[in-house]
Every structure is written in C-alpha cells, then in structure tokens.
C-alpha cells in the first residue's frame, strides 16, 4: 500500500500522538467522565489507522501487524475474564464481584475494578478495530496482486 503526500505525513506526525494520548485519557477516566473503554479504544485504533493510511505499508508488514493485534485482542478479553473470575475466588464466590477497595468517589484511582475493566475493554476494542481494518486492506492487497 502506498503512502500519501508529505503534507499529510507531516500533519499526521503532529496529531497522531495527541489522538493516542486522548484515547488513553478517555480510557483511564472511564469511571469518572463520559466515555470509557469502548470509546477510548476506538480513538486509539483511530490513531494507528491514521498512521497506516498516511505512511502506507508493505504487505508483509501488514500481515505481521494483523497477527500482533489479534494477540492483543485475545489477551484483552482473557484478562477481562480473569479479573471477573477473581470474584469467584476472593469476592465471596460472586462472578464480577468488585472486591477491591472502592476509594473516594471522584479520585482517579477509585471504584475498585472498574478502571481495570476499562483498560481491558480499551485494549480489546482498539486491537479488534485495528484487526478488522488490517484484514480489509490485506484482502484488498491480495485482490490487487
């Protein structure tokens, strides 16, 4: 896949990092402000997609990226499920029990498991949206070959 012009490349270079940070901000403040794992994950995936579109990529590198993002996608779900299952062991045998200390409402580190769940969901959504995008362009490259 070919990249775009130097103007697009430079602009992307400037804003992709900001978008990435903003995604992380949305994920981490999921239990305090609107948004959360899903919305933040989409923004994270957006920054990656922007970079790939602007700079272009080699077919083989795309395939490698796709397999990497699939691993992160599965890991995200597994860690989420593992956190939920810890409730069965430590939280009075209740699935999804929020047995960590809840802290003061409004603080960044509070609400027990919710920020951790948000991080898992964020990784999962970012990786799966990226995988879908990569699968589509890999498919297109294969047809063009």
């Amino acid at each position: 896949m070919k990249g775009m012009t130097i103007i697009v490349k430079k602009t992307t270079q400037l804003i992709a990092g900001m978008i990435f940070l903003y995604g992380i901000y949305i994920i981490l403040h999921g239990h305090l402000t609107p948004g959360g794992g899903f919305a933040g994950g989409i923004i994270l995936a957006g920054s990656f997609i922007l970079l790939i579109l602007a700079y272009g990529s080699d077919f083989l590198i795309l395939v490698r990226k796709e397999s990497g993002s699939t691993i992160y996608e599965n890991l995200g779900v597994l860690v989420f499920l593992f956190l939920a299952l810890t409730g069965l062991l430590f939280g009075g045998r209740i699935f999804f029990a929020n047995w960590l200390p809840h802290g003061t409402p409004g603080e960044l580190i509070s609400a027990g498991f919710l920020p951790l769940y948000n991080i898992c969901v964020g990784i999962e959504v970012a990786a799966s949206i990226l995988s879908i995008f990569l699968a589509l362009i890999i498919f297109k490259e294969e047809i063009l070959k």
């Binding site: 599965n74 890991l75 779900v77 597994l78 499920l81 593992f82 939920a84 069965l88 699935f95």
Partner: peptide, 17 residues
C-alpha cells in the same frame, strides 16, 4: 452457573493465543 459461560469463552481466546 457463571462457569457455563466463562469457561468456553476463556477456552476460545486461549486457543487463539
């Protein structure tokens, strides 16, 4: 009861990794 759903889900994603 929750294991009916949790175990096959975990199995599916473990297989993928």
């Amino acid at each position: 009861i929750p294991l009916f759903v949790a175990v096959p889900l975990a199995g599916a994603f473990l297989i993928m990794i």
